[in-house]
Every structure is written in C-alpha cells, then in structure tokens.
Amino acid sequence: MKILDSFLSLFKAPLSKGISRPSNGYHFSTINKSLTLRHVDVGSCNGCEIEIASAFNPIYDAGRFGVALTASPRHADGLLVTGVVTQNMVDPLIKTFDATPNPKIVIACGDCAISGNLFKNGYGVKGPVSEVLNVDVSIMGCPPHPIDIVDTLRAIADPK
C-alpha cells in the first residue's frame, strides 16, 4: 500500500477539479464511500476511455475507494462524460441524465468534455458538456492521467 502510494506521488499532477455551477442535487453525505458511475461517450476519440480503463485496472485501482462503473444509469450516482458533445449524442446524454436517480453528479472527463478542445466548432459538434448539462466536476487533461481520474473520483467518494 505504502509502496503504491509513493509510486503514485511520483506522478502526482495538480488536482484538477472544480465545482462550476450549482450542483444537480449532489450531496456528499449520500455518496459516502460509494460512488457508482455511468460512463457516457458523447464523441470522444477514445483516449479518455483508455485512461478510464486504466484507472480501474490493478495498478491504479480506483475500486479501492468504493468507486465503480455500472451498465445502467439507474444504478449510477452520476455520469462520467467523455468527449465533445456531438449533435447525435445530445439527446442520449439528456436521456441518460434523466434516467439517473437523484442525487447525482456530472463529471466532465478530459479537455474535450470541458471545453470542446480541438473539436470546438467542428462539424456536427454541439459543444462542451456544460452546454447540455450542469457539470459539477471536471477532470482536465488530454487525455487525463489515470491518477488524476482516481484522485478526483476519490475526492468525490471519500471527501474527508
């Protein structure tokens, strides 16, 4: 454990989370030590996906903080959105958001999701996630390092 921690501290990047707008009714008291997320790819290049997968692998193991990914938004406490929102994914994103029970959190993962990055005014692009939903937490990076992802998710799941 300690070895892993020191290993992690080598890569420690600046913490990149910030509450951007009034939350979607997300309470720390509810999501305490247990955070289940539904990952939504709204137009990502799959770089973020690879890093998310890494964040849950045995090396970074986000699972040890009670974080898990789930298949159904009904089971989720929030959405982990990657990529710039394309026109075709606007509706599914909103539907997924609606299908998630309150209280819930929206995490924009990666620069595309936060700002649109390279694709900002591209063809068929709606814009960053914040144009569609209220984003609570953002994870910066293109793609974000797994440690950043783990760190952010840990800060949400276990805020003490």
Partner: peptide
C-alpha cells in the same frame, strides 16, 4: 488475488446504505 488493493470489506454496506 488479482494483486489489487480492492474495496474495503464493508464496501457492500456502504453501497446498500447509499
């Protein structure tokens, strides 16, 4: 067994409480 730390033993309780 997979060489990971894994969730705490009480994780299922936390999940159910949530």
């Amino acid at each position: 067994a997979e060489r990971r730390v894994g969730p705490p033993i009480l994780q299922t309780f936390y999940d159910l409480r949530k």
